[in-house]
């Protein structure tokens, strides 16, 4: 990725004539020099933002350990803040289960959709599918939550004769929410494969499906993996839609349809009841820190995947 300036510097070094610039030109040159700093500063600000988020949320979160031992926070299942018990294990556990389950639900449809859009759909179908995918991403999460609350929860409740709240409806809603993310990134990965792979496979007499299954999908694996990781990140960080359907009891889930709480919804639920600076409040910041660290780790994994596929 060569920037314009790199190319320019090579050329301009030799050709600078020695004549006196006018005042207007001086002004332009001065503005040019100032703007360069403005751009550098705005770029530096972006970096400053993420660092201050890590530092502020981190510092506030780590204060929790003044009142609770790390062992209790990460491994105890007893979350009774009024009695000074801060075991966040149920939230962590439910977050992991919910994230994995939603990816499992979303992946088949997302991959099928990606293959369909990239290789099979005729143009008119593609013209419908692309904006449809964008629109899926555009629908606000509270609206997804409302659908979950008014359609999916009552349906599950009727089938199993219970309340219907829990991880299962949350995973279904999340699967629909992350499906377009996985779909569009996987589609890009499949379409950006060199055409010779497909041509060689077809020339050898493979059918279209054999080509897709045995050649294209394996070759697009790094891109699909990136898509899945991004989808996981989105599922893990989603708050409002999950809040509306998961039930929000601070306990280990007994089954997929029993009320429980994940990290994000625990924060939303308790933030209003706590005073800034209390251990309870700090514990919520610690949960936010956990979410932040996990999502940064996911980004790191994506970078590693990308670098490894570049090396090949």
């Amino acid at each position: 990725m060569n920037s314009y300036v790199d190319k320019l510097d090579e050329k301009s070094a030799s050709g600078r004539a020695a004549w006196k610039p006018s005042r207007w030109m001086n002004m332009q040159n001065k503005a040019d020099a100032t703007m360069r700093y403005v751009f550098i500063i705005s770029a530096a600000l972006v970096a400053a933002v993420i660092f201050s988020i890590i530092v502020f949320v981190g510092m506030q979160g780590v204060k929790t350990f003044a009142g609770v031992s790390p062992w209790e926070f990460f491994f105890s299942t007893d979350w009774t803040p009024s009695a000074g018990k801060f075991g966040a294990f149920p939230f962590l556990f439910s977050t992991v289960v919910l994230t994995l389950l939603s990816v499992v639900f979303a992946l088949p449809l997302a991959l099928a959709g990606a293959i369909f859009t990239a290789k099979i759909a005729p143009n008119w179908m593609r013209e419908i599918l692309r904006p449809a995918t964008d629109l899926f991403v555009g629908i606000p999460s509270v609206v997804y939550g409302l659908i979950g609350l008014t359609v999916i929860v009552p349906f599950i409740g009727k089938v199993v004769k219970g309340t219907g709240y829990g991880i299962l409806p949350a995973a279904i809603i999340l699967a629909i929410m992350i499906m377009p993310t996985i779909l569009s990134i996987s589609e890009d990965a499949i379409r950006s494969l060199p055409g010779r792979l497909e041509e060689a496979s077809l020339a050898l007499g493979a059918t279209r499906w054999q080509t897709i299954w045995k050649v294209l999908l394996p070759a697009a694996r790094p891109g699909i993996l990136t898509a899945v990781i991004l989808g996981m990140g989105r599922a893990m960080g989603e708050t409002m839609a999950v809040f509306m359907v998961i039930g929000n009891s601070p306990q280990m889930p007994k089954s997929l349809i029993s009320s429980t709480t994940v990290l994000t919804t625990a924060i939303v639920k308790d933030m209003g009841n706590t005073n800034y600076g209390s251990t309870w409040n700090n514990a919520l910041f610690l949960m936010a820190l956990l979410l932040l660290v996990i999502s940064l780790l996911l980004i790191l994994i994506i970078r590693v995947v990308a670098r490894r596929s570049e090396l090949k």
Partner: peptide, 25 residues
């Protein structure tokens, strides 16, 4: 590189974490 990583990291931050940061700051 630092700027690029920051942009990527920033786009992956869950929105509730932004919310808490805003609440704090």
């Amino acid at each position: 590189d630092l700027i690029r990583i920051s942009v990527e990291a920033l786009s992956s931050v869950p929105s509730i974490v932004f919310g808490l940061f805003g609440y704090l700051l």
